[in-house]
Nucleic acid binder design. Sequence first.
DNA 1: AGCCAGGCCCAAC
DNA 2: GTTGGGCATGGC
Length: 297
Amino acid sequence: MKEFHLEIENVRDFNLDHIFDCGQCFRWKKEEDGSYTGVITYFFEKDWIKAAVNVDFKEFEGDLGGVIKIKSTSPISKEFWENYLDLQTDYGKIKRSLSRKDKHIRGAIKSGEGIRLLNQDKWETLISFIISANNNIPRIKGCIESLSKNFGESLGEFRGEERFAFPMPESLAELTEDDLGICKLGYRAKYIIDTSKAVADKGIDALFLIEKMDSEKAFKDITSYKGVGPKVAHCILLFALGKRESFPVDVWMSKVMLDIYGLENKKEIETFAKETFGKNRGIAQQYLFYHIREKGI
DNA sequence: AGCCAGGCCCAAC
DNA sequence: GTTGGGCATGGC
């Protein structure tokens, strides 16, 4: 099969393990050589991109940044990757700003210093985080792979495995709960069917409209989909709808915020985060999430 | 066995 | 508007 190659140079504040293993995405898998292989299913500039992809990163000595090397089964523009990998954002500046707050966030930033918040596909992220509710990350990954294998388009073999795109809204919308049984989604199956019908019905454009709304209105809109409560909504807003002021609080965040700052409940946590970390508190959240999962308490 | 996981829905206050 | 029970599945 033909492979398309692309390189992006002069990249800083970038670490594949931190980016792909910090809980924001579920379809990237580490290879033995340290690169990551995954599948991109993305509605970008009025069309679906579907490709199996391998991403590698070589960092230069000293302070010279590094180069991202991308191989994919179909051609994908540099503009796509700059947006997807959030390369236009100056993370050095954000980290310096957050670091002024206290030693705790400084420590968290140090353990996940190469984190970048991806700008992910809206549809895939919506369904993925419905699956994430009251679930654990390895099983979430399994459910998403199963959905793709059973109901997504085959992209052929890439690096020794047949790869599958994430299913289209119309494909999931026509399924019954019985059909979804093989994916072991549990009680989330009916939420996924309901939400898929809504998206297939309203069109993918409805998700793009949310991106343009202010956070409060966007939150109200996204929580109208079945299976999307406050926490899942914040994840989708943060990871796919450009709302870096979203601050998801799950059981891990509750643990770390209690441990570090002594905050007992969700309302306290949200108020503190807004006052302390400001408009980029979603990025601060991701450093903290990575930190607690990496180091434990 | 029982507890937990990037919680949500819905009925009952 | 807030609270609490019920909920599929698999790992530990």
